[in-house]
């Protein structure tokens, strides 16, 4: 375990080195949150859309902001850089598991994002009033699903960075993935607004766990067995992608060419 806590600690320390970048991108995300809040407040001024009234939508957007901020794009760039630059070569001569080490780094860097989320949520509450929280057991389930965002998002990012073994280019892969996750996770609009077939597909895809699941549990639209099932789906996808990534990594290594030096 010690090799991995060491990676997590180093990543936690180096997160501070990027605070400037981080604060700027956080500012961008906060502006987006304010804009969405303003738009939906007007749209929901008198009544409901797709089963959401204003207090629900406000809570949904706040949770969506939190889940978008945790495990940011920086993780993608850091991991893809390792492969494209050939640094992965040096990781392979160390007594550590490559995937676990990358996960430890990701988890280590989360604290700064968590702090930022807490600050932004506190400001939102201070301005717009308290958010309704779900009853005790559902709050626990909500917390579990927020925590699961970290390994889930890591797995999605890690898998897409492995594409670098084949494409030797990452930005295109990242854009495609962001478009897909933005839509299917419910970060753009709640999945309930989609046509039935798309909503169902999205709900059971690995992406729903990134935004929709914690948000729906928080606002009480998913509760009881349904909520447990959604969280179990998150966990299931984490496991499937974790082990799938191992297979893919092994295949990728066969493609590895490290030129020069």
């Amino acid at each position: 375990m010690k090799p991995y806590t060491a990676h997590a600690r180093a990543a936690a320390l180096s997160a501070l080195a990027y605070r400037g970048n981080f604060l700027l991108s956080l500012g961008g995300a906060a502006v987006q949150l304010i804009a969405l809040l303003a738009v939906w407040k007007v749209l929901l001024a008198d009544g409901q859309v797709g089963g959401f009234d204003w207090p629900h939508m406000r809570a949904y957007l706040v949770v969506a902001f939190a889940s978008a901020t945790l495990v940011g794009t920086f993780v993608d760039f850091r991991m893809s850089h390792r492969i494209r630059s050939g640094l992965v070569a040096l990781d392979l001569v160390k007594p550590v598991d490559y995937q676990r080490a990358r996960f430890a780094e990701t988890a280590g860097g989360v604290w700064i994002e968590a702090v930022a989320v807490i600050v932004v949520v506190a400001i939102t509450v201070a301005i717009g009033g308290a958010l309704d929280t779900p009853p005790g057991p559902m709050l626990g389930l909500f917390a579990a699903s927020i925590v699961l965002i970290v390994p889930l998002k890591f797995a999605v990012s890690y898998l897409s960075t492995l594409a670098c073994f084949w494409t030797e280019n990452f930005v295109g892969v990242l854009w495609a993935r962001q478009a897909l996750t933005g839509l299917l996770s419910g970060a753009l609009v709640p999945l309930a607004f989609f046509p039935g077939w798309l909503a169902t597909t999205a709900q059971w895809s690995p992406f729903a766990g990134l935004t929709s699941t914690p948000a729906l549990i928080f606002i009480g639209q998913a509760s009881g067995t349904h909520a447990v099932l959604l969280v179990a789906t998150q966990l299931g996808w984490v496991l499937v992608m974790w082990y799938g990534a191992r297979l893919l990594f092994r295949r990728g290594l066969r493609r590895l060419t490290v030129n020069g030096g």
Partner: peptide, 25 residues
């Protein structure tokens, strides 16, 4: 590899070596 570094980019060298200390036990 003379053309590559395994040091952490934004940490002091001492921290990079401390990570390796733990990695190798």
């Amino acid at each position: 590899f003379g053309q590559r570094t395994q040091l952490w980019w934004d940490l002091p060298v001492s921290e990079s070596l401390a990570v390796l200390r733990d990695v190798y036990g």
